[in-house]
């Protein structure tokens, strides 16, 4: 099996490994212990394996590990931690945007990429941005709510979506 030495950064840490040339970035990351990158289809259909490559979201199952050489990979662990949550993570939790949680890492990274580019997107733009990230549990509503809450407009009155309504 032909191998190559690959070297890239994951969440700021240098990673170096000898890998078969055909290994995808998804496979490489999971082998290296970054199991927060989820494998849902390996065909670019579901978005569960989304990571940021130099800040831009990619399906890591569609990128070869060698293509990441010299680049920066960000997984969900790179944007926040248990005691230092990213605002998106905090809002996902508070809005009930996480059910089974399997799509969550990829969903958060797609959302982060959008907000990095455009701090005040509309709901429509948010829906477009995450349309490559499938979720089977939530129906997306609370995910969009959570991202909306994180936008620069989010906390302004009137933009916030009403919480659960009891009649």
């Amino acid at each position: 099996m032909k191998t190559l030495s690959v070297q890239f950064k994951v969440n700021g840490e240098e990673v170096q490994a000898e890998m078969p040339t055909h290994i995808t970035l998804l496979q490489a990351l999971r082998e290296l212990g970054y199991t927060e990158v989820k494998n849902g289809c390996e065909k670019g259909d579901c978005g569960s394996c989304t990571v940021l490559l130099d800040g831009l979201p990619v399906n890591s199952c569609l990128v070869l590990a060698v293509q990441a050489t010299g680049r920066e990979v960000t997984t969900v662990r790179g944007i926040g931690s248990l005691d230092n949550l990213h605002p998106l993570q905090k809002n996902f939790i508070e809005h009930g945007a996480i059910q089974c949680g399997f799509c969550t890492p990829g969903m958060l990274l797609s959302a982060k990429a959008l907000l990095d580019e455009n701090p005040s997107p509309t709901r429509k733009e948010i829906r477009e941005q995450i349309s490559g990230n499938l979720c089977r549990c939530t129906g997306y509503v609370k995910i969009v709510d959570a991202i909306m809450e994180t936008t620069s407009e989010g906390s302004k009155a009137g933009k916030r979506r009403p919480r659960a309504r009891k009649c």
Partner: peptide, 23 residues
């Protein structure tokens, strides 16, 4: 009260070990 799920914190930061994550 709309209390969030106890596991959503670890899910949000990628700490949850799902079925395929144990070695």
């Amino acid at each position: 009260k709309s209390i969030p799920q106890p596991d959503s914190l670890e899910k949000a930061v990628g700490e949850t070990l799902f079925s395929d994550d144990i070695r």
